[in-house]
């Protein structure tokens, strides 16, 4: 059961990122206690992760569900947290790593339609959580300016036990995906990092990416790195300092078939660590 609070947050996030003039939505992230672990492996290693949304990087503010976080194992199997908790400010989940390799933790918001229209008696547009077709069927006769968008987001991170591998980030071919060309375990301060973006399995140009180091609460400037993907879907950047980073990627595309929505908006949040040299 989702709490009213969560629904409010979700719709607020979406509304602010889609319709409102306010450009800044809450960032969302999965933050594990560690990204790279060494262990004999026989007993396994517990990883605990915060799942939150907030406006300062890694200052948790609003929880969202962590019970349905998906874990892709180094063998490519799908698993779920062994336990989870939802508090007032963050959710937490635990997972036991039992085999060496790279694990992907992800929260995938399935594609959702949102629409809006205007009516003469209100200055503010009326919003619906429906596609355009359903909205049209339900809106008053004097409504106008019907617009709709399809939203899809991924919130993801990678954790590696001993030797890294790449199975957990193989492309699924659906919507926007970030493929770490530089393995997440090999992201190092002052070293160039490369990622590739795919849309429906194809390299995609023009993905807008912002990368912010943790600790924005304690500095005056955000110091974000901003890059756009090139024709091959690639971005390159150099983390200036070791630490934890949040990457926010955004990609909007017009839809050919506008019956249900005019455009599709894709968002990816990736949490990663840049290690010391």
């Amino acid at each position: 059961m989702k709490t009213p609070k969560l629904i409010t947050l979700a719709s607020c996030l979406i509304a602010s990122s889609i319709f409102s003039t306010c450009a800044i939505a809450h960032d969302r992230w999965i933050l594990p206690n560690e990204f790279n672990i060494s262990n004999d492996g026989a007993k396994g290693v517990w990883i605990t992760s915060d799942v939150t949304a907030g406006n300062q990087v890694f200052v948790f503010d609003k929880p969202f569900g962590s019970e349905d976080i998906e874990i892709i194992t180094p063998e490519g199997k799908l698993e779920y947290p062994s336990s989870s908790y939802r508090g007032g400010r963050k959710s937490v989940f635990d997972y036991l790593l039992t085999q060496p390799g790279t694990y992907r933790f992800q929260k995938e918001a399935k594609g959702k339609y949102y629409s809006q229209y205007k009516i003469p008696t209100s200055e503010k547009p009326i919003r619906t959580k429906l596609d355009k077709l359903a909205t049209k069927a339900n809106m008053p006769k004097d409504a106008s300016d019907l617009k709709g968008a399809l939203y899809f987001s991924r919130i993801e991170t990678y954790v590696t036990l001993n030797k890294p591998n790449n199975t957990a980030f193989e492309s699924t071919g659906e919507f926007l995906e970030l493929i770490p060309t530089t393995h997440p375990s090999d992201i190092i301060e002052n070293n160039e990092t490369k990622f590739k973006f795919l849309f429906n399995g194809k390299e995609v140009k023009g993905v807008e990416v912002s990368i912010v180091r943790e600790g924005t609460l304690y500095r005056n400037q955000i110091e974000e790195i901003e890059v756009n993907s090139d024709a091959k879907g690639n971005i390159e950047f150099t983390p200036p300092k070791a630490g934890r980073y949040l990457l926010h990627a955004n990609y909007e595309t017009k839809l050919n078939d506008t019956k249900l929505a005019d455009k599709m908006v894709n968002t990816i949040f990736l949490t990663f660590e840049a290690g010391l040299e």
């Binding site: 790279n36 060494s38 001993n162 190092i188 290690g275 010391l276 040299e277």
Partner: peptide
Amino acid sequence: WLKDIRRWWRKIGR
């Protein structure tokens, strides 16, 4: 704690 020997861990230990 091997991972705390960070560069060595990354280059070969892991």
